[in-house]
Design a binder for these strands. Structure first.
Lengths: 185, 185
DNA sequence: CTATTCTAGTTAGCTTCCTAACTATAAGCC
DNA sequence: GGCTTATAGTTAGGAAGCTAACTAGAATAG
C-alpha cells in the first residue's frame, strides 16, 4: 500500500520556475522535502513488501518488534494501551492488530490479576520463531538499500533527518501543545 | 493517517547491542533507515494535516497538482490512466479520486471524441482557485520544516536521498524487472 | 468482414487505518 | 459506603488504498 505521491521528482529548474509564480515556494526546501517524501515511501515499502511474503503487515511487525524488545529488556508486561502509545496508533487499532496476531498464534493475551480492566500481551514461541525467521532478511535488505552510502554519509543523513524531526516537534508543540504535555513545564 | 511505525528511535548503542544477536544488522544502515522512516512520515503528515483543513486528501492533492502543471506545460489532455500512472496508483483508485473531485466540482470529466473509451480530466475554475488558496500555505509549511537546514545541507540531503532512490530502483529492477520495461533494452 | 485480443474506465469487495460510542473496572470525592 | 470521574479494552461504522472481475470500445489477425 504505497503512499499516493507523484512518482516523478521535478528538476530543480522547474522548481525555480514555479517559484516565480509562488513567492512562498523555497526551491531548496521543496527539493529536499520531495526527495524525503519519495525516499521515505521507498524505505517503507522495502519493509512492507518483504513482510508480505511472511504474511505480516508493517503494523503487525511493529507490535512483534516491540514485544521482542520487551522480552529482553524490561520485565514489566506489555499492555495493549502501552503498545498503542509506542506505535502511535489508537487503542482500537491495537485491539485489531492483537486480534489477528493472536488468531495466528503469534502473541497471547493474559488477564491481569490485580486490575481486571487490563490485559498483558506476550510473544508466543511461534511468534518468537517468526521474528527470528524474518529479521535477518529484513536487516539484509536495509543494508542493501543503504549500501551506496558510506558510513560517514549515513551518519550525516541521520543527523540531517534528526534536525527535521526536531523541527517537526517544535512546530507541532508551538501550534498545539497538548494540555497534558504541559504538566512538566 | 500516520504510518504504523515505532515512534521511538533506538539509540545507537542499542543498535550496536542488537547487532550482537543479529549478525546481519548493520548499525549505521539501520540508524539511517529508521531516521528516514520517521522523517518521511513526518513530512507526509505535514502535508496531510494541512490539506485536511481544506477538505483535501494527499491523493486528491496529487491529482490537482498534476492537473495544474498540465494546464501550464503540455496541451495534451490528462486521462485517468495517465494520472494513475504518474501518481503510482491503480486505475481503480484514480476512478475513486476523480469521482470525489468531480463531486466537489474541482475537476471535470470530458469524453474523448475520437476514442470513446477515453476520458480527459480538466481542472475547473473552482479547482484552480482551490489550489491557489492551498499552495502558498503548503509551501510555507515546507519552508518552516526545512528552516533549520542550510541551503548546503538541503542539497546534501537531497543528494543522499537521491542515492537511496537510485539504489532502490536498482534493487527492484534486479529482483523483478517488468517484461515491458525491457522493451527499450 | 468477423473473431480475437487489448485497452480505458468502472464496479465490487477486501484491508488497514481512523473516530466515536460502549462496557467493565478502578480511583477519588462527599 | 455510594456517586462521579477516569481508564482499559472492545465494538461499530467510515475513509482510502488495493486486487480482481466486468463492460465498452478499438486494434489486429484471418
Amino acid at each position: 500500500m504505497p503512499r499516493l505521491l507523484p512518482k516523478h521528482l521535478p528538476r530543480y529548474e522547474c522548481l525555480l520556475e514555479a517559484a516565480k509564480a509562488f513567492p512562498d515556494l523555497d526551491p531548496s526546501a521543496c527539493e529536499a522535502f520531495l526527495h524525503l517524501l519519495r525516499a521515505g515511501d521507498v524505505a517503507f515499502q522495502l519493509g512492507e513488501d518483504y513482510f508480505a511474503g511472511h504474511n505480516i503487515t508493517p503494523g503487525r511487525f511493529a507490535v512483534l518488534m516491540l514485544l521482542l524488545q520487551k522480552t529482553k529488556d524490561c520485565p514489566q508486561p506489555s499492555t495493549p494501551a502501552g503498545l498503542a502509545e509506542m506505535c502511535g496508533v489508537t487503542r482500537a487499532t491495537m485491539t485489531g492488530l492483537i486480534d489477528t496476531l493472536e488468531r495466528d498464534s503469534l502473541v497471547r493475551r493474559e488477564a491481569d490479576t490485580h486490575d481486571r480492566r487490563m490485559m498483558s500481551v506476550h510473544l508466543t514461541p511461534k511468534g518468537h520463531a517468526q521474528m527470528s525467521a524474518i529479521l535477518p532478511g529484513h536487516f539484509k535488505r536495509i543494508a542493501a538499500l543503504m549500501q551506496p552510502l558510506s558510513t560517514v554519509e549515513r551518519r550525516t543523513l541521520a543527523q540531517l533527518l534528526g534536525k527535521i524531526l526536531q523541527q517537526s516537534t517544535n512546530l507541532t508543540d508551538f501550534a498545539g501543545p497538548k494540555p497534558a504535555a504541559l504538566s512538566s513545564a
